[in-house]
Amino acid sequence: MRIGIIGAGALGGTFAVLLERAGHEIQVTARGSGLAAIRAGAIRLSGGFGDGHGHPDAAPTLSGAFDLVLVCTKAQDAEDAIAANAAVVNGSPVIVVQNGLDGVRTATRLLPDSDCFGALSIIAANYTEPGVVRVTTRAATYLGRGSGPADPASKRWAAVLSEAVPVIAVDDFIGSQWTKLVVNMLNGLPAITGLSVQEIIADRGLRRVLTASMREAVRTGMARGIRFGSLQGLSDSRLRFFSRLPLVLGQALPRSMGVRMGSVPNLGSTLQSLRRGQRTEIDFLNGAIVREADAAGAKAPVNAAIVEQVHEVEASGTSIGRDEVLRRIAVR
Results as ranks from 00 to 15, higher is better:
Leu110Ile: 13
Val96His: 05
Ala78Thr: 14
Asn90Phe: 02
Pro60Thr: 01
Asp51Thr: 11
Phe66Ser: 04
Gly148Asp: 11
Pro112Arg: 13
Pro152Glu: 12
Arg138Asp: 00
Gly131Pro: 05
Ala59Val: 00
Gly48Glu: 10
Ala125Ile: 03
Ala42Phe: 13
Val132Arg: 14
Thr29Cys: 11
Val135Thr: 00
Leu101Asn: 03
Gly50Asn: 09
Phe66Leu: 08
Ala36Lys: 10
Gly23His: 07
Leu19Trp: 06
Ala78Met: 14
Ser46Tyr: 05
Arg134Ser: 13
Asn99Met: 10
Thr141Tyr: 09
Arg39Trp: 11
Gly12Glu: 05
Ala75Lys: 03
Val96Asn: 05
Pro60Ile: 02
Pro130Asp: 01
Pro149Thr: 03
Gly146Glu: 11
Leu35Phe: 13
Leu45Trp: 00
Ala83Val: 01
Ala42Met: 08
Leu143Cys: 12
Gly103His: 08
Ala40Phe: 00
Ala78Ile: 12
Val135Pro: 00
Pro93Gly: 06
Val28Ala: 08
Thr136His: 07
Lys74Tyr: 01
Leu18Val: 07
Arg105Cys: 00
Thr61His: 13
Leu11Tyr: 02
Gly118Val: 05
His53Leu: 15
Ala10Met: 04
Val88Asp: 10
Pro56Arg: 03
Gly148His: 02
Arg31Thr: 08
Leu68Arg: 09
Val133Tyr: 02
Val71His: 00
Arg21Glu: 12
Ala87Ile: 02
Gly23Gln: 09
Ala153Thr: 15
Gly50Lys: 09
Gly131Met: 02
Leu62Thr: 01
Gly144Lys: 09
Leu19His: 02
Asp115Met: 13
Pro112Lys: 13
Leu143Thr: 12
Ala86Met: 03
Tyr127His: 15
Gln76Met: 10
Ala81Ile: 02
Ala86Asn: 06
Arg21Thr: 11
Asp57Ala: 15
Pro112Phe: 12
Leu11Met: 15
Ala10Gly: 06
Leu70Asp: 11
Gln27Pro: 01
Thr106Asp: 01
Asp102Thr: 13
Glu20Cys: 08
Arg31Asn: 07
Ser46Lys: 13
Asp102Gly: 09
Pro149Arg: 12
Ile123Thr: 07
Gly7Glu: 00
Val132Asn: 07
Phe117Asp: 03
Ala30Trp: 05
Thr106Tyr: 00
Ala84Tyr: 02
Gly47Lys: 09
Pro130Met: 01
Gly7Ser: 06
Gly47Glu: 10
Thr108Ala: 15
Phe15Ala: 04
Leu143Glu: 08
Leu120Trp: 04
His55Gln: 09
Ala59Glu: 00
Thr136Gly: 14
Ala119Gly: 09
Phe66Pro: 04
Pro152Ala: 13
Val135Leu: 04
Leu19Asp: 03
Ala22Pro: 08
Asp80Val: 10
